Simulated assay, not measured.
Amino acid sequence: MSSPPAIDIRSLRVDYGNFVAVNDLTLQVPPGEVFGIVGPNGAGKTSTFRVLTTLMEPTYGEVILSGVDVLEDIESARRIIGYMPDLAPVPSDLKVWEFLDFHANAYGIGNRAQRRDRVAECLEEVDLTNQRDSWCNKLSRGQTQRVVLAKTLLHRPRVLILDEPASGLDPLARRDLRHALRKLAATGATVFVSSHILSELAEMCTSLCVMNRGKLLASGTVEQVREQLGSNERTLTASLLSGHEQAAEWLSAQPAVHDLQRSGQQIIFGYKGSDESQADLMAGLVRLGVRMRAFEEKRSSFEDILVEVAESNRN
């Protein structure tokens, strides 16, 4: 039998007066996933997180985390949730271990020796053991984010909810954070992470969803999301050794081809069609008898897809 979802959101709606922030959101995330939620400002990400973390009540709907009804049993839900808000502050007058020990004590984690051991474990999980005695105000942005993540892990939450954890991080820090989250998921924890940068989540997550104006538009793996959003636009480049004029004339007559241009031995054009029809296009060029050296594809970036989604949903 399959395990129940770690995150089970059913018909969630959040209203602010006449404004609908989250509109009938239904979503399930299995245990051990790094699951991303992406969307432009106003998509409903923050409101969804506020409900999941028991910081607000929805207009209606259900939220069940690892079998616990968040709206009916807030205290039990809080014991299994680890929440890392965007740009979470750390005190400037504490060392890293002092900051973590303070929160371990607040969580009621054993005696001093047990807290020391748990702090050491969490620092190791985020690869910051060598920063144990550093002052918090001397840490880099990436190190600070990982210290806050270590704090979030202290009470061994089964569901981690991270709001824009990679915001402002350089590529090396994002890589370190990505590795840390995947290590956590490998232990069975479920990580629910938000971002407005789709390519960032594509690198970090095992699966993701896209929201806009409160509605769920797509969910699944990166490729499944791309397919669900119907973004099959791509740029194709045919590098030819002969038959350039013949190939350009034939391609221009194909219904899915647009913006064709020649550059030396290359013919570059936009194409919007299925993978099967693209294969037929290549076969057609071969039948023409042109000598083709290469046929390259460049798909729309995830940022382009998100911009297209946002623009298509404007009034």
Rank of each mutant, 00 (worst) to 15 (best):
R158Y: 02
A104S: 10
H155Y: 14
V290D: 00
I305M: 10
V147Y: 08
D170W: 11
Y83W: 13
E276D: 08
A113T: 12
S2E: 08
R158K: 06
E62M: 04
Q224T: 12
E203T: 09
V257Q: 00
G289V: 01
R182E: 14
R50M: 15
V193K: 01
L177M: 14
Q143A: 15
R178L: 10
E98F: 09
S274Q: 02
A43W: 00
D176R: 01
S76P: 12
N212G: 06
V68W: 09
L241D: 09
V193T: 05
V193I: 14
G289L: 05
I197A: 00
N23E: 13
S239G: 01
Q254L: 15
A218V: 13
K215C: 14
E303Q: 03
A77P: 13
V147E: 02
A166P: 04
L123F: 07
S76L: 09
E200K: 01
V119K: 06
E303I: 00
L25H: 05
N212E: 15
E203V: 11
L12E: 00
E164F: 05
L285W: 00
V119D: 06
D93W: 07
A202K: 01
N105L: 15
R13A: 14
D8M: 07
R146E: 06
R234V: 11
P5R: 04
L52Q: 03
Q143T: 13
I80K: 02
G61F: 07
S66H: 07
Q228R: 11
D259E: 15
S199I: 05
S66V: 11
F99C: 02
L306Q: 04
N41S: 13
L229R: 04
K151M: 08
Q266R: 05
A77F: 12
D15N: 08
S134K: 09
H258A: 14
L208G: 08
T129Q: 09
R156Q: 14
E223R: 09
A21F: 08
R115F: 15
W135K: 05
L94V: 06
F19L: 14
A294E: 15
L281N: 01
I305K: 02
L241N: 08
L201W: 01
D133L: 08
K138S: 11
F302H: 01
V38N: 00
A120M: 03
R13D: 12
P40V: 09
R293Q: 15
L87I: 07
V90R: 00
S274I: 12
Y60I: 03
M1D: 13
W97H: 07
L154H: 11
R262C: 15
E62K: 01
E245V: 06
K272N: 13
L169H: 11
L281V: 12
S300C: 08
V257W: 06
Q114K: 01
Y271M: 04
D86N: 10
E124I: 01
G32N: 02
D86Y: 10
E121F: 11
F192R: 02
N111G: 12
Q261I: 12
Y16H: 02
Y60Q: 11
G61I: 15
